[in-house]
């Protein structure tokens, strides 16, 4: 029995089908992608990485960092909240409107809300309902706005403010989204850890920077030099006991490029494809606390709420 032609056709169909689906369609869809503008501020996004950081990407690639680190934040939901920013003049109407939105508010709670503006008055709702609530509140001469926050496990871990989209990788070649997560996601490593020197120290001795770190040290990216009378300006400021005594640790050019690349990693600009709003100005101080600086294992860090 000659099944040859049939097998040939089946194989052709299977291969060309997946080629069409995985190569041709995405290339039609995203192949002509260009810089866009961020929503709100209208800045050009993304900008190409500086040259040193681009060299760093090749070092990242060559050292297989991608086997333990992804650069791809996922998002499961989008949460909407209504924040009251100004009480306006007609407090009675405002109180009535608030009570209608949330019957749990009693008079005392409402007084507290009006004293500590801006305050979130409706939690975890849909955009349609939030818009309706804002309309109702503004009719009482108060001012309110909808705050849109992407949510999901990655975002709760503090790995980013929003999901990663194709634009984020526009200037990276090759793109290194990664598939395994032995260590934390690095899509926003530079936003969390902007200090190049921290990255250098961490690459030389991860466990000295992050207690209990299982990341392998990359000591071959550094060279040991006999310490002179005065410490060299390029040498790392390591805590005592890490470098052999009488020697100092100086990063090789690859290490500097890699650390610059890591500090340049940041994908949190608000884009059309990932709606997200900045928190109202007065409460901004509450969520701009400085990055943890890798003080604890960020993989197990609790939800940054």
């Amino acid at each position: 029995m000659n099944y040859g032609p049939l097998i040939f056709l089946a194989a052709l169909f299977a291969l060309s089908g997946s080629w069409l689906g995985f190569v041709v369609t995405p290339s039609f869809q995203l192949g002509t992608l260009q810089q866009t503008n961020t929503v709100g501020a209208g800045l050009t996004y993304p900008l190409a990485r500086p040259g040193l950081a681009q060299q760093g990407l090749q070092v990242y690639r060559a050292n297989g960092c991608v086997y333990c680190h992804s650069q791809m934040v996922t998002q499961e939901r989008t949460l909407c909240e209504v924040v009251l920013t100004e009480a306006g003049t007609n407090t009675t109407a405002l109180v009535a409107a608030l009570h209608k939105l949330n019957p749990n508010y009693n008079q005392e709670a409402l007084d507290a809300v009006l004293k500590s503006l801006p305050k979130t008055v409706v939690f975890n709702t849909t955009k349609t309902k939030a818009d309706a609530a804002v309309k109702e509140l503004t009719q009482t001469t108060a001012k309110a706005q909808v705050v849109i926050t992407p949510a999901g496990p990655d975002i709760a871990r503090g790995w980013g403010k929003r999901r990663s989209v194709a634009e984020d990788y526009l200037y990276d070649y090759p793109t290194l989204p990664g598939a395994q997560r032995v260590g934390p996601d690095l899509a926003n490593a530079g936003a969390r850890l902007p200090d190049v020197n921290w990255h250098l120290r961490h690459l030389y001795a991860p466990a000295a920077e992050v207690k209990g770190s299982t990341m392998p040290p990359y000591r071959f990216l550094f060279e040991l030099r006999k310490a002179g009378l005065t410490p060299s300006t390029q040498a790392l400021q390591l805590s005592p006991g890490i470098a052999p005594s009488g020697w100092e640790v100086v990063p090789r050019p690859e290490a500097v490029a890699l650390a610059t690349y890591l500090a340049s990693l940041r994908a949190d600009a608000p884009l059309y494809s990932t709606p997200l709003s900045s928190a109202p100005t007065a409460s901004a101080s509450a969520d701009t606390n400085a990055p943890a600086g890798g003080a604890n294992l960020s993989t197990n860090a609790p939800a940054a709420k």
Partner: peptide, 15 residues
């Protein structure tokens, strides 16, 4: 639907 309402604050200045 989910696009944030424009003009809320000084986004350009912040950026």
């Amino acid at each position: 639907l989910y696009q944030p309402a424009g003009g809320g604050g000084n986004d350009r200045g912040k950026a």
